[in-house]
Amino acid sequence: MKYAGKKLLSMLATLLGVSFLVFFAFDVIPGDPALAQLGTNATPERLEALREEMGLNAPFFQRYFQWIAAFFTGDFGTSYSYHIPVGDMILEKLPISVFMTLMAFVMVLVISIPLGILSAKHEGGKLDTVICTVNQVLMSVPPFFSGMLITLLFGIVLRWFTPGGFVSLEQDAGAFFGYLFFPALAIALPKAAMAVKMLRSSLVTELGKDYPRTAYSRGNTKNQVLRNHVLKNALIPVLTFFGMALTDILTGSIIVEQVFGIPGLGRILLTSIMNRDYPVVEAIIMFMAIIVIVVNFLVDLLYRRLDPQINME
């Protein structure tokens, strides 16, 4: 538990550092938010009044602490372009991105673990070669292109779904998940390929160690050695990768949303970047960073559960 506390503190420190970087970065960029809100033909007096009202004249650190304090109370500021609270904008779109990310992540796990084991079991054989080759090709396809190919194949040729025909969760939950399946697959495929490769090489490394030989000498079959001895050890290094995959999928969803015309977080982020709507950009980036940091924290804890050697010290 001491370890968890230590990690929790370090996680909070990282979060604080990240928030500072984000705030600092958006503070130093040229451009005046007040000007952006009023337009170029505003009078200097009105501009100055708005600056005062928005708290832009306060010292840097005061503004930073105000921002971070507001952030923790759920006040993420107001969008420049839509003049509505940023929090509402994000909350509305969050479920789409979260569901898509989780679906893709589950696909990565479901595809990669059995295939990785199969590939390692037949190391050097025909099946292994086929899996490795397919892997290498899949890893080379950028997710937005695999998204286009999936649209082409399942949407246009096979007509399993209607490209661009996104249905929101409230309208029809079934159709919502049905539609998200294909974009999730597009993000999951390259990640799953990478995961198969990592798991395979980790398994092969473990199989080459001394303790599987001990296991064989007691009369275990290859399947038993893989399942009871090697898998747990091999998963430890791959765990970090799964953590990273989860966060990569989350950011990858920004792009894939674009391919499939899904109005999720990515869509708002991109339009906000184009419109220089900084409060929205800041908030979304902070959101994603928080998710990434929390996932890393959880991976660390899981790591410790799996590996008795770290528990020792």
């Binding site: 990240v18 966060t247 989350l250 950011t251 920004i254 982020l269 970047i273 950009v281 994603m288």
Partner: peptide, 13 residues
Amino acid sequence: AFPSVLLALVVVA
């Protein structure tokens, strides 16, 4: 903690 595409988006922003 920032995935690379996200970081690139920030810088481009």
